[in-house]
């Protein structure tokens, strides 16, 4: 993606990706949650992209996937279709290491069962764990959120992360410029559509 990085560390890339995605139109609607909940639900928009590692040993972000276009707002589904492979004309598909499937949750909700279903399906075509200049990094899905009441300047307040290789669920929050791991547990599936978080 133009005007994004590249970055030497995935943490820096995440720090940059979070506010960028949340700054897109209606990527966060918590400011409308109380005053206009119906408007908030209909306007809420998800954006998604891959964070990937290149042969140049740098972290980059793909173009934001074609989220709900104007013709899709007639549907109540708020899904985001992320192509399984990044199309970066500088490299062949096999040269790119897909690391984080990024998206936003406009209300700051937790990862859905279908989010987990998505990244587990990606684990069938991408390595669960790749070696980078920063050591091993595991494939995961991330949902950014903001708690900002100011739509003009949404803050990046945290993200949920799920790692299929370990079945870990994590919640990272940002406080006073520092990241903090708030929740850590292991996912077990109750059935195809319900998971449970076990403390670890």
């Amino acid at each position: 993606m133009k005007n994004f990085g590249p970055f030497n560390s995935y943490a820096d890339a995440l720090n940059a990706a979070c506010p960028l995605i949340l700054s897109k139109p209606n990527a966060t609607v918590v400011h409308l949650q109380d005053s206009s909940p119906d408007v908030a639900r209909r306007a809420a928009t998800e954006y998604c992209a891959w964070l990937y590692y290149t042969p140049s040993e740098l972290y980059e972000m793909s173009m934001l996937a074609d989220q709900s276009g104007p013709g899709d707002f007639v549907s109540g589904m708020r899904s985001c279709s992320l192509p399984p492979f990044v199309d970066d004309p500088r490299y062949s598909a096999e040269q790119l290491k897909h690391i984080f499937a990024l998206h936003n949750h406009p209300f700051g909700t937790r990862l859905s069962a279908n989010d987990l279903r998505f990244i587990e399906s990606m684990a069938e075509v991408h390595d669960w764990e790749v070696m980078t200049r920063n050591g091993k990094v595991r494939l995961s899905i991330i949902a950014f959120f903001s708690k900002s009441q100011d739509p003009a300047a949404p803050t990046c307040d945290g993200f949920y992360q799920y790692v299929p290789a370990t079945r870990e669920m994590m919640l990272w929050t940002r406080q006073n410029g520092q990241w903090k791991l708030d929740v850590h547990g292991i996912v077990t599936w109750i059935n195809e559509r319900t998971y449970r978080l076990e403390p670890q």
Binding site: R41, A44, E46, M77, R78, S79, C80, H105, P106, F107, T109, R110, L111, S112, A113, N114, D115, M169, G185, I190, T194, Y195, R196, L197, E198, P199
Partner: peptide, 12 residues
């Protein structure tokens, strides 16, 4: 999905 919290999907 993506809009509403699903209690069933997150309890320890």
């Amino acid at each position: 999905d993506g809009l509403d919290e699903d209690d069933a999907n997150w309890f320890a």
